[in-house]
Design a protein around this nucleic acid. Structure first.
Length: 465
RNA sequence: GGCGACGUGGCGGAGUGGCUACGCAGCGGUCUGCAAAACCGUGUACACCAGUUCGAUUCUGGUCGUCGCCUCCA
């Protein structure tokens, strides 16, 4: 059983899944600036869902779009004196890198708005033909007053939409709440030809058109951050229902909560954006994923670097528990827990708690049961997209190492060889009860970033932390 | 201002009408030459005020507070 919160009905619903392909559309980024933690959350959280659906033996058709043309991209690129495509491509690459280091499943299709201009124009024509849009001086606009269900998704009232608006209103619109399907190009702006005039698509229409082109008239899940509910998804829904009144555009609307930086929402306008890549590089994709796993996907989630450090510590425990084991779904009890938690609107924090309860109880288990538990925990984390790849040890500069080991008359060839000799020298001192020297060696080694942990099998390890 | 969400121990974060969440940190211990690591043990938190109830952190109402959306945003 899978219960998920549907933003449209504002309630937890038992999801009905057909045995056919499940169609999922995730609103991807506008490629105007580098990905931040919030982008990471949205992609990882819905990656959990997709992977879980696959675990439940469903076929999934997953589309995530890229908005590569919009006002911000145009203005930013012109500030930098480059073509808008150049900026879009650069940022797009950054997003691709981040998705892959977070081990998010590659979408089956990843359409860009600029590659679907024909479909977009065709879609606008359909809306015009249904008398749900009109052409004015500055563009083609959606006639919201002709769409009775407008604002049903976001639950707003019409006068609120206008009263809160501080943006200059276009005076060639029939109503202030009407939104652009096609914006006519101003001097110097990029444009595509159309029957109505040279211009570019509005923000919302690309999603309607690309969903229609790639997934069809009806889809199962439409996902994105909850900041997109209004106006983006509201308008998208209006367009799609206007073009196809008899179709149920989206079965379930799913929205993830925002990341908060020290109590504040992180957004471009607040200027408190942190670059996601830096954290991935420092903490690894698994740790970032685990950080996202710690919060239920709809709740706002606190972000500080300390919480990332904590996530690393906690995740390390799990990796060590699972390290030597093969992934296998053996422990039925734990699998039931897994499904119960995931089925409860993806309650991943609860799942983590339950897994730790199992780990804590494992001391009483027989060897075989313990192995089964380890394998099953590993299996669950595999399903959730964790890789358990060891963090590449930070490369210390070789000259620094050579110099360091010279002091102890060790000729550096490889780190293993040099450390082996270093340890045996130090061991000699320890046997001779020359603890001062031994401790000093340990401390000096720590200064260059290598930590000795006496009593461990290996005897030494990198200090990645 | 409008709409919505939320307020759980030092921090993060589940959950429940009566019973241990869990993780991190802290504290005590075992081990150790000393550390570290590891292991064992350890905490009567549920914003405030009323009400319903045999009993409320969990239900209802109010108060205060925090956050989000309302404008491009995941």
């Amino acid at each position: 059983m899978l219960n998920l919160y549907n933003s449209y009905t504002k309630s937890l619903e038992e999801v009905e899944l057909s045995q056919d392909e499940i169609k999922i559309y995730l609103c991807g980024p506008t490629v105007q600036s580098s990905p931040h933690i919030g982008h990471g959350r949205s992609s990882v959280v819905f990656d959990f869902l997709i992977r879980y659906l696959k675990y439940l033996n469903h076929k999934v058709l997953f589309v995530r779009n890229i908005t590569d043309i919009d006002d911000k991209i145009i203005s930013k690129s012109s500030e930098q004196g480059i073509e808008f495509q150049e900026l879009a491509n650069k940022v797009m690459t950054e997003f691709g890198d981040v998705y892959s280091s977070l081990n998010c499943l590659t979408p089956d299709k990843e359409p860009k708005a600029t590659e679907y201009i024909d479909e977009i124009k065709e879609y606008i024509t359909q809306i015009l033909n249904k008398d749900m849009a009109y052409i004015s001086e500055s563009g083609v606009y959606f006639e919201t007053s002709n769409f009775t269900d407008y604002l049903k998704l976001s639950g707003r009232k019409l006068d609120e939409v206008i009263s809160g608006t501080r943006v200059e209103l276009q005076d060639d619109k029939n109503a202030p709440e009407d939104f652009a399907l096609w914006k006519f190009a101003k001097e110097g702006e990029p444009y595509w030809d159309s029957d109505w005039g040279k211009g570019r698509p509005g923000w919302h229409i690309e999603c309607s058109a690309m969903i229609n082109a790639l997934l069809g008239e009806e889809i199962d899940f439409h996902c994105g951050g909850n900041d997109l509910i209004f106006p983006h998804h509201e308008n998208e829904l209006a367009q799609s229902k206007a073009a196809k009144p008899n179709k149920n555009f989206v079965k379930y609307w799913l929205h993830n909560g925002m990341i908060n930086l020290s109590g504040k929402k992180m957004s471009k306008s607040e200027g408190n954006v942190k670059i996601l890549k830096d954290y991935i590089d420092e903490y690894s994709g698994d740790v970032m994923r685990f950080y996202f796993l710690r919060a239920q996907y709809r709740s706002p989630q606190e972000f500080t670097e300390d919480l990332l450090i904590e996530s690393r510590t906690t995740f390390k425990k799990i990796s060590e528990f699972v390290e030597e084991s093969k992934s296998a779904p053996i422990d039925k009890n734990l699998l039931n827990i897994f499904e119960a938690c995931m089925g409860d609107d993806l309650n991943t924090p609860k799942l983590i708690g339950e897994i730790f309860i199992q780990i804590n109880h494992s001391v009483t288990l027989e060897e075989e049961e313990l192995q089964n538990l380890r394998s099953t925990v590993r299996f669950i984390f595999d399903i959730l997209g964790f890789t358990f790849t060891k963090v590449e040890n930070e490369k210390l500069p070789k000259d620094k190492l050579i110099k360091f080991f010279e002091e102890y008359k060790i000729i550096f060839e490889t780190i293993e060889q040099a450390m082996g000799e270093f340890i045996s020298i130090r061991e000699k001192y320890r046997l001779e009860r020359e603890y001062k020297i031994a401790d000093e060696m340990r401390n000096k080694l720590l200064e260059i970033g290598i930590k000795i942990e006496d009593g461990k099998k290996d005897g030494w390890s990198w200090n990645n932390n």
